[in-house]
């Protein structure tokens, strides 16, 4: 268990985040779950780059063992993407709250259904 501690943490974050997205109806909670899910990816990339006894990736004499810098760069990008997604998602939730008066997906579902299907029976909505 301890040997694969980092992997276990990664998987735990991944599964917990996904579970929140699936099970929670509250839109903000969903976004939090989504963020956790994304964080697991950061761990997945960065952890294997760390070498025991390695240093920061500085070019210079005497340093032969150093952490791989590439994952850090990649994950910086991924974090930016994640933050942007979260920001956009929260903005949308604010607008949804304004438009529907709620951020519970179940309560909005009825409104999404309107206008459906059977010709002539659709009901107008905003």
């Amino acid at each position: 268990m301890t040997a694969h501690f980092s992997q276990s943490a990664t998987i735990l974050l991944m599964v917990a985040g996904l579970y929140i997205v699936i099970a929670r109806g509250n839109m903000v909670k969903k976004l939090i779950g989504l963020s956790m899910f994304q964080s697991s990816v950061y761990l997945l990339y960065i952890l294997p780059g760390k070498l025991i006894g390695g240093t920061a990736p500085i070019l210079g004499a005497g340093y032969s063992v150093y952490a791989n810098p590439l994952p850090h760069v990649l994950i910086l990008t991924a974090i930016v993407v994640g933050v942007a997604t979260l920001a956009l998602g929260l903005t949308l939730v604010v607008r949804i709250k304004e438009a529907f008066g709620t951020i519970e997906e179940d309560e909005i579902a009825g409104d999404m259904r309107s206008d459906g299907s059977k010709p002539g029976r659709g009901r107008k909505s905003a």
Binding site: M14, V21, Q38, V41, A78, I96, A99
Partner: peptide, 25 residues
């Protein structure tokens, strides 16, 4: 224009992000 567009966008945001994250995993 429709307010349901917001919900559709939110839903796509969640689903799309999951998709992209799965891909990057």
């Amino acid at each position: 224009r429709d307010r349901r567009a917001l919900v559709a966008a939110y839903q796509y945001l969640i689903v799309g992000t999951i998709g992209a994250t799965l891909y990057v995993i």
